[in-house]
Nucleic acid binder design. Structure first.
Length: 374
DNA sequence: AAAGTCTTCAACCGCCGGCGA
DNA sequence: CTCGCCGGCGGTTGAAGACTT
């Protein structure tokens, strides 16, 4: 049996709303509330179907709707939530007060999604697009001096660290963050150490299951590019967390390509897949991500808003290629933005850089920092 | 200045799940 | 239990404006 249409469409207006129609709808809802959408248009004197009225109200006329460009923080949140929730726009919108699911969906499709694609990130999986990466150059480099035993899955996406339960908990955590930031931060702080340890254990397990010995006391690096303005996230692994002093070089500054090196007790899991890599305070404020900025000018600046934050995470084990042709398949037809440091930086570029750093940092381990996941 | 192309986003469409009769 | 209604959701469309040639 076919379903009856939501409303009789005969004689009902479609298309853009006029200001008069808007006014009628607003006045009616202010008086009577937004109860029965089916009968609302008739009662309000509108030649529209109830669905259209509801859409107009929820997506445009509602007084609590925030209009205007999305802030970096909002973008940040959208990307994070999308990596967890996928295209659950209403769920994402629930975490962004004043933004509608439709608006977020549009913004994703017209801005963020395209930007991720330009940066070689699959907007669906939030992983680097392997088809755009020159895998041979990566595998032939000194990256993970462990021949080819590590699977690309664990190599790139840390997917093995993910499981549905973690996803559920991550969602829960983010809800907590939105609803009660204080509680969220409290939970984070209470569990920093255990989280850190357990993440390391998980990674160790992954490595072992891949028949790879954990690179204790060695620096595991990728071959660096000659691109300027390179930044790298370094993760002590698996030694104890440590604090990097600002402007203190964690490794020889004149080294741009270092294979397994021993730096005393410091063990680093580092990566420099990304070239344009901008640390963003907003993100660090929340996740406490530690970023090591490795400029070819030999200034290795450790950026952290909070020097007391001794957290380290396994985030950004893989950063994202955004500008270096070396890492992308030159035969690819995909659009490619070469945002070298000599290029004039636009607002969009900045967002792209921010997006790059953010999306990279928001790998699974960032989520795992939350106590609830352990 | 005009034509063509691209981008944006409000609005529509169809499907789905919850709920009550 | 089944059916129909309703609200909500995600995917898609297309008009309008912006941009390029």
């Amino acid at each position: 049996m076919g379903r009856a249409p939501c409303c009789d469409k005969n004689g009902l207006k479609k298309g853009p709303w006029t200001t008069e129609e808007d006014q009628k709808l607003i006045e009616y809802i202010q008086k009577h509330g937004s109860g029965n959408w089916r009968t609302l248009p008739k009662n309000a004197g509108l030649q529209r179907c109830g669905k259209s009225c509801r859409l107009r109200w929820t997506n445009y006329l509602r007084p609590d709707i925030k209009r205007g460009r999305f802030s970096l923080e909002e973008e940040d949140t959208i990307i994070q939530l999308h990596s967890i929730l996928g295209n659950k726009w209403s769920a994402i919108a629930a975490h962004l007060p004043g933004r509608t699911d439709n608006e977020i969906k549009n913004y994703w499709n017209t801005h963020i999604r395209k930007r991720l694609l330009r940066m070689g990130i699959d907007p669906v999986t939030h992983n680097p697009r392997l088809d755009l990466l020159d895998l041979s150059s990566i595998l032939n480099s000194s990256l993970y001096n462990v021949s080819s035993q590590m699977s690309t899955t664990s190599l790139f996406g840390l997917r093995p660290l993910f499981n549905p339960e973690l996803l559920r908990l991550a969602t829960s955590l983010l809800s907590t963050r939105a609803e009660n930031p204080n509680l969220f931060m409290q939970n984070l702080q209470q569990n920093q150490l255990s989280s850190s340890t357990q993440i390391e254990n998980q990674l160790t397990h992954v490595l072992q299951s891949s028949q790879i010995q954990p690179p204790v006391h060695n620096i595991l690096t990728c071959t660096t590019t000659t691109t300027t303005n390179t930044a790298t996230t370094c993760i002590p692994f698996p030694s104890e967390p440590q604090v990097m002093e600002p402007n203190k070089e964690p490794y020889p500054s004149n080294t741009t390509d270092f294979d397994a090196q021993n730096f005393g007790d410091q063990s680093w899991l580092s990566c420099d897949f990304v070239e344009e890599y901008v640390s963003q305070p907003s993100f660090n404020d929340f996740y406490g991500t530690e970023i090591m900025d490795v400029n070819s000018s030999q200034n290795s600046t450790f950026r952290s808003n909070d020097s007391s934050n001794q957290n380290f995470n396994i985030a950004s084990v893989f950063s994202t290629p955004s500008s270096s042709p070396k890492l992308l398949n030159s035969n690819s037809n995909s659009a490619f933005v070469n945002s070298s440091s000599t290029t004039t930086t636009t607002a969009e570029d900045e967002r792209e850089s921010y997006c790059s750093s953010m999306i990279t940092k928001f790998r699974i381990p960032d989520i795992l920092r939350g106590s609830e996941f352990m």
